[in-house]
Structures are given as structure tokens and as C-alpha cells.
Design a protein around this nucleic acid. Sequence first.
DNA 1: TTAGCGATTATGTCTATACATAATTCCGGA
DNA 2: TCCGGAATTATGTATAGACATAATCGCTAA
Lengths: 233, 233
Amino acid sequence: MTGYRDIKEAVLRRIHAGEWPPGALIPSEADLAAEYGTARGTANRAIRELAETGLVERRRRAGTRVTHRAGRSALVAIPIVRAEIEAAGRRYGYALLDRRIEPGDQRHIGRLDPQAGAPVLALTCLHLADGEPHQLEDRLIGLDVVPDARDVDFTATSPNEWLVRAVPYSRSEHIFSAATPTEDDRSRLRLRPDEPVFLIERRTWLGAKPVTWVRLAHPGARYRMASRDHDAA
Amino acid sequence: MTGYRDIKEAVLRRIHAGEWPPGALIPSEADLAAEYGTARGTANRAIRELAETGLVERRRRAGTRVTHRAGRSALVAIPIVRAEIEAAGRRYGYALLDRRIEPGDQRHIGRLDPQAGAPVLALTCLHLADGEPHQLEDRLIGLDVVPDARDVDFTATSPNEWLVRAVPYSRSEHIFSAATPTEDDRSRLRLRPDEPVFLIERRTWLGAKPVTWVRLAHPGARYRMASRDHDAA
DNA sequence: TTAGCGATTATGTCTATACATAATTCCGGA
DNA sequence: TCCGGAATTATGTATAGACATAATCGCTAA
């Protein structure tokens, strides 16, 4: 039985083999269905999924063409720090360094962007791997959007772990960069002289409302974020 | 007419509204189809696509549950440097700094991993934004896999632009990190004292054969890579 | 020559039905 | 009580047929 996966793999193989170079028109769904002896729906699903990964582009009436691979995307998984450390076979440690409730004001503009006056929970925590500082987390949580956060014991549960379980979100934004560490970074992450930090800034929203902002600082020389992407199949 | 998009949006909305919190079981395809007055295939496509984004998880017989958002993935687009610079409204500049053909040996292990003895094209180029150094590119191309690269004039076309047009690939891997610059980085990127670099390392394969390895160094203080992800819809 | 319109075509989506497959539940026998 | 197999159930996939929609092609008339 030929399934949509078989057609997908076959077309993928033929593209990689150079049978259809970038820009070339591949056979129509009807032709592929006839060639592989399936219903058009099966060929449709195969080619539709290839189009979703960006390998081909489809237009009604004009047919399906192999994409010129400008600006392909990579799927980067940003793991929960604890899972990441444990997956590497290291012992996870966690400490809450600071907890404050502040009125939302100018200080938070460009980060959480809270409604004026809405209270903001500010947390600072440290994640350790085998006792070594691994990630310094500075977080803001909008208490108007997530009132429950006020009563959580963040000495026991890290904000990340609590949030992903308790609060849904609809949109997120990540910024990656390399930076010269602040004095805080330097002492809390016990950085070597001149060691840079790898920064991830993440903001998440639920609808239009900002849920949380977080700055994650890692010892740059000791941190790597990896991703793999496939053409599917 | 209710389409699969409508069901997708409706379910998404109900999850965000808290009707089905993380871990909760959502109605079966049959129930959703009945509720929205469609065929099961339509509900199937809606929920299947939500599962592809990681919002829900599906298991045969056990049903569909809202995901506990541990380790969600963000889709990070890694743009072609020229497009990135021009999109920011800046003038793109490019220079080839070095070009060599070397026999593949130990030096390339862990990077391109070429077949022993296969020739390797090594390129160093600089990408500029408004005349300022923006990205330093060190690249290895396996000439056994991509023989055409030997005859390309890389003073006119950057390797990236040529490769994405001319060579398909089936798999890629990215590593992001922050690092202390090498002496080369420092002089060629005209870094300020103690300014770190933001590094992207990418390797791509065609089937089992390594196509290219590249190290992209950016002035850390002046470079940011951003991504946005949505729940779809 | 060309503007415009209808025919054509490939993709997009939906339907109803069918069978496959994985996983849980239930029930009976040892 | 515990084990194993059968029934049940939700998802996974395929089918043939139908109509919608976008875009192109080609013909006709101005």
C-alpha cells in the first residue's frame, strides 16, 4: 500500500537527486496520484506537507514548484533549563535569589509593558548544573494577568516550571544575543574574566495581554544552544 | 460553511479561554464534528494541525490532551544576511577576504567531517551594513559533494547566496553561542575592547554527505536575532 | 494590436465511508 | 487476586466524488 508518506519521501528523493531543480515544476497531484496508484487526496497530503516545510511552493492553476531556498527556517527548541541539565546527565540545582512586588511603571516599559499601575512580580533566580551556575533568570510577571503567581512559593518551584504548567499563552517572542555581563551576572554566574554571556530574552502574551518577560543569562563560553531541522520524512 | 480553520480557531480560543486547561482531554474528533456539523475528516485536519504546532498531544484510543507547555519550540528564522541587512533599511556590502582549496584532513574534523582526502574549499568573507562590519563568515564546502563550487566567482556572489540557490540539502544543524572573539574576529569586525561575538555555527548535509560548514561571527553588542511564534491560526 | 471574457486547469477543501492501529477497559478463567 | 485475551474506542489513513477558487490560456471582438 502506498501511503502519503511514501509519496512524500519519493518526491523528496527525486528533488534531492536533482530530477526537479529549484524552480522546476513538479507533476500535478492528479499525475502523482496516477503514477503511484493512489487517490488524489493522498498525493495532496504528501505535497501539502512538503509545502509546509517550505521545500516546494504551490499556486492554484500554476502548479507546484521546487523552492529557491532563500531564507529557510530552522526549528529551534528552547528547553526548560531543568530538563536540559538533567538530559546532559548533570545534577540540577535551583535557588530563588530575590522576590519583589512592584507597581508597573517606566522601569518595565519595553520589557513586560504592563498596564500603568498594575502590580508586577519581579523574581531573580539561579539554576545550577552540578553545583555550577548555569543560568541566571530575571523575570517579570504581570499580576493583573496572572494573579495566582502572588501566592506561589517560588523557593520550591522555579517560575518557569510553574508558568508552563499553570498559564497558557498565545504568542511569544525570543531575542538571542551575546553581551558583556553586568556586575550581577559576573558575580552570580561566577564568570571568568572577560567571559561573555549568552542572552535569551523571551516575552509571552495571552491575547493582547503581556504575561511574562524573562532575561536568561548563561556563561557564554560554557553554553550552546543547538537545533536540527530536517526536510521532513 | 464551517471549515477546518474555523474548528481550529474555535478550539484554540477555548483552550486560551481556559475551558480546557493544560492536561485536559478535549472532545474527540467525532464529537467535534457533530458539534460543528462537519465530517470527521474536517475535525481531524483541524486538530491534527494543532498537534503539529505542539499545542495538543494525541494518542490513539486515549484521545487528545492540551499540552503541558514544557519545552515548547520556537520557530526561529535564520535569514540570509543580505536580506536581513536590507530589510533593516541599511546598505549591504560584501567582500571576499580569502579563498583556499585544502585537502580534507584533521583540521576539518568536527566541522565539515569530509571524506579523508576529499578537497575542501575554504572561504572567508565579510558582510557589511552601511559600511560597518556585520558578519564574518568562515566557510568550508566539500568539493566532492559540490564540485561546481570550485569554479564560482565568490568575489561577486556570497557563498551563502550561491549555495541556497544551487545546492539542495536534506538536514541542517545550528549551534548558537556567545564567545570571546579571536584576534581575527576582533580586527575584521572592528570590535570594541571586550565586545563579545554572537556565533552561529551551521552544518548541512545532503543525505549522509556533508555539504557545508559555516561559522558566522557577529558583533555581540550590535547583533540580535529575534523570533516570534504563534499558536497558529 | 489589444482588451476582455470565457474555458481550462491545478490546487483547496469537504463529504461519507471504510478499514487499520494503538491503547485502554473489561471480563472471565486459573 | 492476578493474568491474559477480547471488546471497545479514538486516532490514523485511504478512497471516490464533488464543488470552490485562483490563475492562466486562448479566443473573440473592438
